[in-house]
Amino acid sequence: MQNGPVIQLEEVHKVYHMGEVEIPALQGVSLSVQPGEMIAIMGASGSGKSTLMNLLGCLDHPTAGRYLLEGRDVASLSSVERAHIRNRKIGFVFQQFNLLARTSALENVELPTLYAALPAEERHQRAQAVLRLVGLEERAHHQPSQLSGGQQQRVAIARALINNPSILLADEPTGNLDSRTSVEIMNLLERLNHERKLLVVLVTHEPNIAAYARRILFMRDGLILHDYPVRDRHQALEAVHQIMTEAAEVEVAEARE
C-alpha cells in the first residue's frame, strides 16, 4: 500500500433535490484518513453522517469538491470501477443488516465473491473462514430469520470482510442491537482494526460505542465541527462527553435566540 492518506476529502458538498427544494446534506467537508485508523462519527440525526458514509463508500458522488481514495479521484472513475472498489476495497455494514432473506448465512457471506468471480472452492473456503472469524461457523446454514440480531450483524460483517477490504464502513452497526450484543460487535471491530490493520469508520450515537475509536468526529449541519484524536478509551469518553455538553449548550443557546 502506498504512503499518505487512504481517504482524502477536499471541500466536499452534497446537495439532494426533492422536487424544487434543495437539501444541502454536506456543506464543505474536508477530511484526511490514514491507513488502519478507527474513527467514530457522531452527530445529531440529519447532520449528514450517512451521506458522508455513502460518499466514502463510493455509493454516491459529491455535488462539489474532491474525494481521493488511495490518491485517485473517485469522480474520474467509471461506474464499473466504482462497483469494483465497493467489491474489493470497501466493506459496508448497515444498521438494518441488509441480509438477503431466505438465504443461508453462508450464501449471504459469499455474495461479494460472486461479483468478484472467484472460483467456487475459494469462495467456499473464504466464506467458512470469515464465518469462523465472527464466531458463526456453526450457523453457516441458518437463514437470517433463524438468527438473532447480533448474529445477523456478524453475518453482515463477515460479508463485508470476505474480499479482504482495507476499509470497513459501518453506519450505526449497533443501532438495532441491545448493549450486550453491541459490545460483542464492537470487540469484533476493534480486533479487526488491531489484528488486520483494517481502517474502520463507524457512525454511532452511543458514547460507549464511540469510545472504541481512536478518533472522534462530530458533525453538525453537514460540517465536521470537531475532529479529536484520542489515545485510549478513557480519553475517548472524555472527548465525547465534552462534545455532547458543548452541543447541548449550543442547542440551549439556539433555543434562546
Binding site: 463508500g57 462497483a83 469494483h84 461479494p112 461479483y115 460479508r159 463485508a160
Partner: peptide, 16 residues
Amino acid sequence: TREIGVRMAVGATEMD
C-alpha cells in the same frame, strides 16, 4: 429493490 441495493453495495455493476 432492497436486494438490488445490497447487491450494488457489495460490488454488483449495473450490467451484473
